[in-house]
Design a protein around this nucleic acid. Structure first.
Lengths: 128, 128
DNA sequence: ATAACTGCAAATCTTTTGCTTACAG
DNA sequence: CTGTAAGCAAAAGATTTGCAGTTAT
């Protein structure tokens, strides 16, 4: 295992918010100053192929690139505040039902799901 | 209303599958041969700002760009077959429940949602 | 040893911007 | 007329590829 990979995985593991490739690179540089963006992208791709991380867009609220997070064992929903851009996650209570219904309706087996919701957080609702 | 806009809106309106900017350009060229990609992108942006079309990624199964569809009145889920890439839509039955639960859980008001699910369609399940 | 991993530069792809000309109301 | 839209070329941002040198096992 190389130092650069350790750094990237570690960052994803301990990230407070969702990271995109640029932030990942910036922060990894603190640990491995010579790390290149290519390595970041290559590592992301591997981890994604292995199913270890998930890719998000967060509704492109900030930019058109992608964000990454360690693949959770349970499906969850990302909710982006259209006012302040803050991202929250809702627990997957309802998801099991949705999944069952989709399977019944379409005959598909569900392997993965990305659900991104936009709305106003309680604070931003007051300001309107 | 310009000819190029009519062409683009018309294509989105009558599209059988989901279109990305490139396909939109190709197909619009049949009607307005000199139309430029810039016009396509600008029109897409306007329509999106007006809330008339929705942007999808379809889990980036084909590429990292975006797909567009006329904004439906009811929320629905896109389900992409991981085997053959075919896209289906599931009706929004379950969505109302999910939405209610998210609102209760987080206090957010929900303005929009994009839900993309990956799995295997019945045909591809047989082939495995 | 040797196969996998890295950095660097250049290429590719999608989308945006600046500017000048053309068109619709 | 007058503002809005179109086309063209060039720029910008995200991601990938080719290649030669380096590192882990």
């Amino acid at each position: 295992m190389t130092r650069q990979r350790v750094a990237i995985v570690d960052l994803l593991d301990n990230a407070a918010d969702h990271l995109d490739a640029k932030k990942l690179l910036e922060q990894a540089k603190r640990r491995v100053p010579d790390i290149d963006k290519t390595t970041v992208y290559r590592t992301i791709r591997r981890l994604r192929q292995l199913g270890l991380i998930d890719e998000l867009d967060l509704l492109h609220f900030r930019h058109d690139g992608h964000f990454y997070e360690l693949a959770p064992d349970k499906m969850h929903l990302h909710i982006v505040c259209t006012g302040c851009g803050q991202v929250r996650e809702a627990s997957p209570q309802a998801w099991a039902d949705v999944e069952r219904e989709i399977q019944a309706q379409t005959g598909y087996t569900i392997e993965m799901a990305r659900c991104e919701v936009g709305g106003y957080c309680p604070e931003c609702q007051k300001k309107r």
